[in-house]
């Protein structure tokens, strides 16, 4: 079973990397982009025994720093 964890900066936390990406998009002539925020995608291959609570604990204890980041978990059935 696969899970995907999306880690994003909380609103109000400055994202200089997002700003640099935004600036580069502007430089390439792309218009209509009002803001860019950069985050992380972490893919996990899991045994079926791993519970949602386990996965949540992994996010809180390591994968995200909840002082500055939010996380969202997506679980999908394996092949």
């Amino acid at each position: 079973m696969k899970a995907r964890v999306f880690v994003t900066l909380k609103g109000g936390v400055l994202d200089p990397q997002g700003k640099a990406i935004h600036h580069a998009l502007d430089s390439l002539g792309f218009s209509g982009v009002s803001d860019v925020r950069q985050g992380k995608l972490i893919e996990l291959e899991l045994d079926d025994a791993v519970s949602d609570a386990d996965l949540d604990a992994m996010c809180r204890k390591l994968l995200a720093n909840t002082v500055i980041e939010n996380y969202r978990i997506e679980r999908e059935a394996g092949p």
């Binding site: 936390v13 400055l14 200089p16 640099a20 720093n65 002082v67």
Partner: peptide
């Protein structure tokens, strides 16, 4: 120390990158 929670807050990428 901030990552362990021994000190509050976090250290982000420098504002000027």
């Amino acid at each position: 120390l901030t990552e362990t929670g021994l000190l509050p807050g976090a250290l982000l990428r420098n504002a000027g990158t």
